[in-house]
Design a protein around this nucleic acid. Structure first.
Lengths: 338, 338
DNA sequence: TAGGGTCGGTCAAACGATTGAACGACTCTG
DNA sequence: CAGAGTCGTTCAATCGTTTGACCGACCCTA
């Protein structure tokens, strides 16, 4: 009564051919010459028996898992949700399955994942978010192709794909300049994040077109969280009074920025304009709806997958995904008052 | 120069034993009797060579993949982020890897996933979100153990784990009643979602303690999105004027509810109190910060994994995760005005 | 009609780990 | 000192696919 799994041999027997034929038919082997009616018999047998190739056996033989790994810090962060979505889509398009794991969690850690995944379970690994040098070493020791996503590391690893954060910052600041703002301050991301550095650089560059020169007091760092944004804003209110606009390094911090401004009795956008990087669904529903720079996060994830699958491990891969960046003008920015 | 993968045989050779010994040492086979120094030699060889078992070979032999699949509608939905986090954690604790896929996407669909996963790649499957009857049939045909998460299906499939949605609704409504509200309306979820039905039922039951009897006009349906919440609210403002509080079936819709109330010139919580189901990080940052019922979503995911791994396929599994539900009192609810 | 080409297949050796069975060398025990 | 256990280890079959090598039948051509 218990039905055994259907294998190649079963199909071969039913079709009256050798299992080699069946295998080649299944894999559409171009070197196969076969009579049309034989192929027909095979296909029929496959469908009648409901045959499905065993992945384990196939992986064993071919030494390919058909799987890619993506490690992110946290599923609850919508930025990574976008990256995952893009990566998954690209992986599926190439016939691969994507395994996504978080490196912060009750039983998970980067280490744990490297142990579980580094056994031929995946053909390649993508790391989004911060990584330690030790983890990178371990990664190298696994002999897997891997690359960093949205992080450009200072170490010796030369495979990564990032976004044009400086350009995003410029778009945001130029928007504010066009609205007539001059004294524009910056709520920057954490020191360790290279995305934050690039956005700060873009801010400085764009501010060259302002009459207001950027001073140290015009920039405060947050840790990419709402609370961090709130604290940085409080700091800026003290250090850099008179600013009419804020460029925030990400949407999460912008939430805290809006909170703090409101509590300080400042109206957005009447008194202060706010623009942030990343256009997440959330932005639209803040009060006021947040003006943002849309970043191609899905494309970032997709490019990472493509590069991982097409480049050879020794290749250096350093790509900046630059398309489809645009300013999304909502309610948190308005012309500067004369 | 190119280093071959290290196998059992290599380790065995270096340690001067048979590969069977190595295998049993690696797997901590309790039936193995071995001299301590031999074990030591084996372990040393393993670490010297950096041996890692090949998952494909192991899966082939044992017919176990060590992997579970979880299919969700959308990574961007924070509700599923919580479920994933819980499921991942439980899976890792049991030595399994979790493969999470979304069923809505450029190249993904439930079907596509069933094809990719239903080949011995996973030992079991969890489905969160809506499922069609055809998909369920296909699932059955794969002969995989599977279960529904956060959905209780009307079909013949009798394996699922859900939350006590009625109880959550009661907590919310009782909170409003305690604040003195009587005319409480309900922005319900879509008809197809059983979670929505249970929450509506809980609402009706709790309202038995109100002096205001629930009429059809006191309930409007939305589709669990902000827009849906906005539309339902507009409908309620027309149909059921005079309400002093709204119970919203989920946080996403609550976003739209707050929007619409604001645009209608109603202040929250001074004029209308709002409480919603699910405590997501987002809730804290809405304006005003949203009072919610915290649901054990992570535990839901974790229980699903545990049940999938411990129950036998023919068992009926119908579990309601009920712990850790509580009301989170924030700024969107206040005492009813006399 | 011998020799060489296609055609249309079949054969069998991997891939790397797991696991029941067998086995040789000891140590007891009666 | 024969017979029976333990102890510690080896043997070998098996999981299901893939893939290069081989092979027989048939058709040409010289």
């Amino acid at each position: 009564m218990t039905t055994r799994r259907v294998t190649l041999v079963d199909v071969a027997r039913l079709a009256g051919v050798d299992k080699a034929i069946v295998s080649r038919v299944v894999n559409a082997d171009p070197s196969l010459v076969i009579r049309p009616d034989t192929r027909e018999r095979v296909l029929e047998a496959i469908s009648n028996l409901g045959y499905r190739p065993n992945v384990a056996a196939r992986s064993l033989r071919t030494a390919k898992a058909g799987t890619l790994g993506l490690v992110i810090p946290d599923f609850a962060n919508p930025v990574y949700a976008e990256i995952i979505t893009g990566a998954e889509s690209a992986a599926l398009a190439r016939g691969h399955v994507l395994v996504t794991g978080s490196s912060t969690g009750a039983h998970s850690s980067m280490d744990r994942y490297l142990d579980l995944l580094g056994q031929g379970r995946v053909d390649g690994l993508m790391l989004a978010g911060p990584t330690t040098a030790r983890e990178q070493q371990k990664l190298e020791s696994l002999g897997l192709p891997w690359m960093m996503v949205n992080r450009r590391d200072t170490g010796e690893h030369h495979r990564f794909v990032i976004l044009d954060d400086a350009q995003a910052a410029k778009l945001a600041v130029e928007h504010l300049l066009e609205l007539g703002h001059r004294h524009i301050v910056h709520v920057a991301g954490p020191f360790g994040a290279d995305t934050a550095r690039r956005r700060a650089t873009g801010y400085r560059q764009a501010m060259k077109n302002s009459t207001h020169p950027v001073r140290a007091e015009d920039i405060a760092r947050g840790d990419y969280t709402p609370r961090g944004g709130a604290e940085a804003t409080a700091e800026l209110l003290r250090k850099s009074p008179g600013a009419t606009a804020v460029f925030v390094a990400n949407v999460a911090m912008a939430v805290g920025v809006l909170d703090t401004l409101r509590r300080a009795g400042l109206r957005v956008p009447e008194d202060v304009s706010v623009v942030a990087v990343h256009d997440l669904p959330l932005a639209e529903h803040l009060v006021p709806a947040l003006t943002t720079v849309r970043m191609p996060l899905q494309e970032l994830g997709a490019r990472a997958v493509d590069l991982l699958l097409t480049s050879s491990p020794e290749d250096e891969v350093a790509e900046v995904v630059g398309t489809a960046m645009e300013l999304v003008y909502r309610e948190s920015t308005a012309p500067a008052r004369p």
